[in-house]
Amino acid sequence: MIVFVRFNSSHGFPVEVDSDTSIFQLKEVVAKRQGVPADQLRVIFAGKELRNDWTVQNCDLDQQSIVHIVQRPWRKGQEMNATGGDDPRNAAGGCEREPQSLTRVDLSSSVLPGDSVGLAVILHTDSRKDSPPAGSPAGRSIYNSFYVYCKGPCQRVQPGKLRVQCSTCRQATLTLTQGPSCWDDVLIPNRMSGECQSPHCPGTSAEFFFKCGAHPTSDKETSVALHLIATNSRNITCITCTDVRSPVLVFQCNSRHVICLDCFHLYCVTRLNDRQFVHDPQLGYSLPCVAGCPNSLIKELHHFRILGEEQYNRYQQYGAEECVLQMGGVLCPRPGCGAGLLPEPDQRKVTCEGGNGLGCGFAFCRECKEAYHEGECSAVFEASGTTTQAYRVDERAAEQARWEAASKETIKKTTKPCPRCHVPVEKNGGCMHMKCPQPQCRLEWCWNCGCEWNRVCMGDHWFDV
C-alpha cells in the first residue's frame, strides 16, 4: 500500500509500505531520502505521535493516508518512550493509558441525555464484534464512529474520518494533550489543546475536521460531520418502519427517538411537499423529531443533505422563500418566477423588478396576487391545505425507538455506581478489583462488596467470576 509523507509540512511524497511495516522502518526510509538522522524524526498522525514499535496496521493507516513527519531533536526523557523501550505506560498493571487514536474515538455516547454525564468515556458498548469485510486488514473493525456528507465523488452519507490540525499553522502536526470525549470537544473551536510539532510553531489549540472515509482524499478535501447519525450498535428499532437498520439518525429530543435514513428521507420529502418545515429565527429551515417532541429541531442543517441534490435544492429554495415571508415580504405569483420581494408595508401595487435578471417585471396586487387592478379585489380565496398535519407515529413504536432507553438498560445490566462519587462504572470481565475512572475520584473498590478495596476482598473473592 501507499502512504503519503509530508516532511516538515512540505509537499508530500509517496512511500510504499506493508501492513506489518513498523513506524521506525518508515522513519528509516524517510531519513534516507531526506539525509537526516532517523532518531530525530517524529511521525504524527490523527493528533498522535506514533511509536517506533507500532506497525502501519496498528495505527489504522489506510491506503493513501497522509502522515506528517517532522525533524525535531529529542528532548530529555522522550527518546526512550518513542523507541518502544522502557515506557512506564506499558508496564503490566499500570494505570496510565495511551491517548486514544482519533481513528478509534467514539462519540456516540454523547447523544445520551444530559443526566448521563461521564458515560462518553466510561461506558463502552460490546456491539462492535462484526466481522471485518472481505479485503480489510485482519482485526480491523467495521464499526463506524462518525458519518459525514461527502460532496465529492460519493454525493451521499458516508463513514467519516476525524482529523485534527494546529489552529495556528493549519498543519496536521499537532499532538493532542488528551483525546475528545464528546461532540462539544470536536465542534467547539479551541476547546481542546495540544502541542504543535512543526518547527518554530508555538500553536497549542486544536482544530478538528472530518474527511470522507470511503475514498482517498487530499489535504484540502473536508466534509461536514453529521453528528446525529450513528451506527445502530444498540439495535434500536426505527420509529417509523420498526426495522432494525444501521446507520440511524438520533433526534435530540428527551427520548432520543431513532429513525433509519430511508424513513428520514421520506419524512423530509413529505414535509417538504406540504411546505411544513419549521422556520426558526436562529436555526433556519428545519424539522423536529418525527414524533413531534418539543425542543427537538435539527440544529445542523447539513443533515438535510440526505435528501439528495434535487430535493436539497428545493429545500434551500423553500427556506429562502419562507425567510422572505417571515420578513413581511411577498413572492411573485407569476408561474416560473417566484422571486422574493420586500415592498413597503402599505404598498398595494407590487412590481417584480426586472433588474439584474432576477425579476420578471410582472405587476400584481398584494392582496389577491392577481395582475394589478384598481378598486376592490374580486375574490380572495383562503389558501387550502395549509394546516399542519401531524406525522403519524405509532405510540408503541415510539416507545421502542428510544436510544436513551437502550442506554439505561445497558447501564443497569453492566454497571454499578462507584461507592464514593456514584458514577456508573462498567465491568466487562476481569477481577473484582475496580478503579473509578473519574479523575477527581480514582477510588479503588470491590465490585462484589461495593466497598473500598481491602485485604478481605483480596483474599476471599479477588478473582471470582
Rank of each mutant, 00 (worst) to 15 (best):
T125C: 09
A38W: 04
V117T: 12
R442L: 06
A397L: 10
S205C: 08
R234Q: 10
M327Y: 08
D115C: 05
H303K: 01
F463G: 00
S110I: 06
N190I: 04
R140V: 11
V224C: 09
C436H: 01
P288F: 04
G361V: 03
L174Y: 08
R305I: 07
P294Y: 06
L162S: 02
R420L: 14
T415Y: 12
G361H: 09
R156A: 15
D60N: 15
A31I: 00
I122H: 15
T414L: 09
S131Q: 11
F251K: 01
I44Q: 02
E399A: 11
N144L: 03
P99E: 15
N144K: 09
A406T: 14
P73K: 06
L443D: 07
D62I: 09
S167R: 12
R72H: 14
I44C: 06
A379C: 07
R140G: 12
E28Y: 03
V324T: 14
C337F: 02
Q171K: 15
F251E: 00
F304G: 02
P343M: 08
F45A: 13
D280Q: 11
R334C: 04
S109Q: 13
C457Q: 00
A405W: 07
S101M: 10
Q155N: 13
L174S: 04
M1I: 07
N232R: 01
K151T: 14
I2C: 14
A398W: 10
W447P: 00
P137Q: 12
D86G: 12
Q252W: 03
I142H: 14
E409Y: 11
G194K: 01
E309P: 15
D20I: 03
V67N: 00
C365H: 02
P202G: 13
V105P: 14
N273G: 03
V224S: 10
G361N: 07
Y267Q: 03
S108V: 09
Q40F: 05
E309G: 09
D106R: 07
F364S: 04
K369I: 04
C436T: 00
F146G: 02
T125A: 14
G114S: 13
F304W: 02
L249T: 00
C352V: 02
Q155K: 14
C95D: 14
A291S: 08
P189R: 07
V5T: 03
L301E: 09
N190T: 07
I66G: 03
V425H: 07
K412W: 10
L50K: 00
A320Y: 11
C441E: 00
